[in-house]
Design a protein around this nucleic acid. Sequence first.
DNA 1: TTCAAACTCCGAACAATGTCAGGTCAACCG
DNA 2: CGGTTGACCTGACATTGTTCGGAGTTTGAA
Lengths: 206, 206
Amino acid sequence: MSGQPNSDRRTVRRQETRREIVGASWDLVREHGLAGLAMRDLGERVGMRAQSIYSYFASKHEIYDAMFLEGYQAFAIWMADAVDGDAAPDPTGAARATARAFVEFCTSDPVRYQLLFQRTIPDFVPSPDSYAVAVGVYAEFRERLSAIGVRDQATLDLWTAMLTGITDQQISNDPGGDRWKQLIDRAVDMLLADTRTHTNPESEKA
Amino acid sequence: MSGQPNSDRRTVRRQETRREIVGASWDLVREHGLAGLAMRDLGERVGMRAQSIYSYFASKHEIYDAMFLEGYQAFAIWMADAVDGDAAPDPTGAARATARAFVEFCTSDPVRYQLLFQRTIPDFVPSPDSYAVAVGVYAEFRERLSAIGVRDQATLDLWTAMLTGITDQQISNDPGGDRWKQLIDRAVDMLLADTRTHTNPESEKA
DNA sequence: TTCAAACTCCGAACAATGTCAGGTCAACCG
DNA sequence: CGGTTGACCTGACATTGTTCGGAGTTTGAA
């Protein structure tokens, strides 16, 4: 995997700078909004001219792509931590914990949420690699719900709609507050009841 | 209201041109996306230079604002029609009709949905006037749900989260399809059951 | 009818954007 | 040491929204 023909020191330094650029991008984006990321500002932040950034990223979209990837990796870690923390054996508790973790992850960093889950940057499309990671993380999330009893596609769709709906409303109508977050447990109970009604215990697939 | 000091013919002509500009904006926006509206393109579409548009609108945001207003007016009309159409006296049918009308309005014109319900244009903030109309329309929608039995704020929030969640998923993950739309009736039934559980019949306010 | 004001539209230009083309200089490898 | 590679810069270009100043026309009153 490593030990490529080219110098090691150089490669390391390069990756460091790339990380520094992405880090500065997160800062700027949290200050000026996702669309407010300007190459010249970014250059100033990392101590170079805007054009020099093109030695590290082929375009601004490629920076967004790196952030996108980082965001999904953070999501995977966050969700894993959330379950390791409290090992609640009862299904209701587990479902609530999962839902709370999801909404908390999203609302804790609205700009990241915007980048990962909303299509808001004009022509940005994640690269195949980043997208693959996103799909993988989504599959994990799906498994988590499956363990709770959400197995068929329609039920899963209903759960995601409910949870993203709560998240969306929370971020856009009460940022920083908890008006919609308070509803999570109630929503989960409601969904669980509905899921039990609509899932026939014999069939596991759909 | 009319018969202002200034000429009538001129005022009429002016309003006509304004409408033409807004109409062309809708066209362009549906072709190139909400963020893809360019003043020069717009000018070409209405037969003038970009700068001349500034005789009618002080800025591009003011055009978005006019569209925003128009969108909410269309929303009010749509929802009114939806209920006049089928006079279903049973609460479940009424609730389903309302939910379907809402989602259908949103998905029938994704760009409009983006403008009205998502905060996606970098620095756009609706004018007080337009915003007031939006609030009024929202109040109507709220009354409609109130007639169904959704009276306290928390329950209303849950309903809006569910409906916007379905809409969002439908638009971003299955545009033009009906994967999430199919879930509307099920979601409404679920919400109704939940609402009856959480609404204590004595108290009407919360 | 005449005249000044208002309105409509235009060409030129400005600042800010992302990005490309070259050039310079140091670091690296054989 | 010589040649290649990479990091960084200056300069420039096209495309954005928008401003300025000036034509030409319309309008309401004298």
